[in-house]
Design a protein around this nucleic acid. Structure first.
Lengths: 204, 204
DNA sequence: TTCGGTAAAAGAAGATTATTCTGTTTTTGC
DNA sequence: GCAAAAACAGAATAATCTTCTTTTACCGAA
């Protein structure tokens, strides 16, 4: 299972072979050169195809970027949902959110780096509505799950608006630092610290 | 005191008038249209100057971006240093870091939005070394301050690598959400919650 | 005040790159 | 096997960053 299983899962079949290849080489370029600095020509050269084929499949550069972005985001969310499905208490749920996040980043560092880099571009581009809808949906579902543990949810004494920030803020911040090389220790090594800190920060 | 006092402080005098104006109009464009979408032509049009003048002063688009970015970052850090100077305990220091951050973002929302947007571009561009040096210096100074409270510093029971993430992670995450319009309540209203949560997350 | 040098400013020309468009080949459904 | 649709190719276009040359303004020293 290489780092491109995400694409194979999401664009399966023989018909989509070139489409997958374009995305694969584009991701490589985005990571290697940065989103802004990769040219259509560079992608074209790497998969030995034509600009026509690229524009036929994706419309424009944003189209490639967004397809990659949503594929990665879907995979990350799928991973979260799997972890979250087995939880039976609020505390377990909080732990799941943190751990699935840290695990996914460590398992897919290139994709994670790309997600961080591409977010702002997608948020402004032609797919901004789709991004908003997806984020809103994810937020809604997570909120429902966290508040769905009956009485126990009273242990969240913070205004819910800031709960998500309290839970994922530190992990996200550390993962970015790790992907940028500013810290060396794998985020996985701090699973307990981040999860326990998040849990306690929800209480008073 | 308008939102451009930051530029007036940092590029004073009559000789720098056009330089300031270019930066001002560029910031307006970056905020309005996004960093990527603003063209040299758009900036040129807004300050009624020539491409020659712009390139004379800043070399290239990155030059404008970096000058703005560093000006904002300096102002933010200056604000932090002021707050931090008066602290006499670890707890006070942690509170200062959080509150000065939240206050600055609320006082300068356009600059804050710009800082978030421009960071990745500066981190890849020709000023990446300067950015690294600045960040390293800031990190070093903050670490020294936090660990400089003698015995009391033992109340930090977390590995120091993750301490910064625990302190500013949630605030940063919430501020981004606020600037993007995903939440409505001003970060200032949650000063206590973020500061208190951060303080407790450092202990065990 | 004038002179010479340096900085500032203008704008045309060049180079790069995203995108469009037209034509050709391949695949698919019948 | 055939028409229609999709896939693909690549030249032409348009937008935009950057460079280069020329002109203008400023400023200290003779």
């Amino acid at each position: 299972m290489n780092q491109f299983h995400i694409l194979e899962n999401r664009f399966p079949g023989r018909r989509a072979a070139l489409k997958r290849d374009i995305l694969e080489q584009a991701l490589y370029c985005f990571i290697e050169l940065g989103v802004e600095a990769t040219t259509i020509d560079a992608i074209k050269a790497r998969c030995e195809t034509s600009v026509g084929a690229i524009y036929h499949h994706f419309g424009n550069k944003e189209g490639i970027l967004s397809a990659l972005f949503f594929a990665a985001q879907d995979d990350q969310r799928q991973h979260l949902d799997q972890e979250l499905a087995n939880t039976n208490s609020l505390r377990e749920a909080v732990y799941s959110v943190i751990c699935s996040y840290l695990d996914w980043v460590v398992a897919n560092p290139e994709w994670a780096r790309f997600l961080y880099q591409a977010r702002s571009a997608v948020a402004k581009g032609p797919f901004q509505e789709e991004l908003k809808d997806r984020n809103a949906k994810g937020f809604r579902e997570l909120k429902a799950k966290l508040l769905g543990f009956g009485n126990e949810s009273n242990s969240i004494v913070q205004p819910f608006e800031i709960v998500i920030s309290l839970i994922v803020g530190p992990s996200e911040n550390y993962c970015k630092a790790w992907l940028a090389g500013r810290v060396q220790t794998s985020p996985r090594d701090y699973r307990e610290e981040f999860a326990e800190s998040a849990w306690r920060s929800l209480q008073r």
